[in-house]
């Protein structure tokens, strides 16, 4: 079994209201020295069998079409062999 991890983040130029809310809570809780917080999404995709080049390419296509919206988001993808 192999796991493909896709991390999705809003593009830097897109405002992240959720990250701003978390940042505000940091301050209220006394966690100082934090300049900014941005919130993203992490997808852990477990494959049947090995992460071959073809399988990873398929997951990359899924990331492009479904997991991330390229208008507002960037993503990174990596394979974790277990």
């Amino acid at each position: 079994m192999a796991r493909v991890v896709v991390d999705v983040m809003l593009k830097p130029e897109i405002l992240d209201p959720q990250g701003k809310a978390v940042h505000g809570a940091f301050g209220r809780l006394g966690f100082d020295g934090v300049a900014d917080v941005r919130q993203g999404k992490r997808f852990e995709i477990t494959l049947d069998g090995e992460a071959t080049e073809e399988r990873v390419a398929e997951i990359r296509k899924a990331a492009d079409t479904l997991l991330a919206n390229p208008v507002i988001e960037d993503y990174t993808l990596h394979v974790e062999n277990q």
Binding site: L10, I14, L15, P17, Q18, K20, A21, N69, V71, I72
Partner: peptide, 11 residues
């Protein structure tokens, strides 16, 4: 349509 809709800026 182009663009996207994200959370209201005032949350």
């Amino acid at each position: 349509l182009p663009g996207a809709l994200i959370k209201n800026h005032h949350r």
